[in-house]
Design a protein around this nucleic acid. Sequence first.
DNA 1: ATACTGACTAGAA
DNA 2: CTTCTAGCCAGTA
Length: 112
Amino acid sequence: MKKDNFYADVLAVVALIPYGKVTTYGAIAEYLGAKRSARMVGYALNQSTYSPENPLPAHRVINRSGALTGKHAFSGVSMAERLISEGILVENDCVKDLNTYFWNPNEALLHF
DNA sequence: ATACTGACTAGAA
DNA sequence: CTTCTAGCCAGTA
């Protein structure tokens, strides 16, 4: 799955994030073997934000601090509301217990 | 080819 | 705690 195209890989990993879990750009980038390309992860998501055609849970992807940096890319229902709906504690556009809900693709997927 | 931008991160002050 | 710096890479002009 890796190496074909960075974007498709990012989208694939994000799509695998389980309900009620969140991950970070850096974690995804690290799983893809490009730890320095965390920015590209967010950039990739920007081209495929959640939509009827692309059911991608991009709202589960946040920055290392737990801040919902990509909320501006969403329209209508805010990113925070979606996370709260999944049982994740969010306040002031920031995940409270990031470590509790953190989902590490590197562990979950075991270096596929 | 350069220059700028961006859903980032880690380190330093 | 905040703010700044530098590094990173893909896309665009």
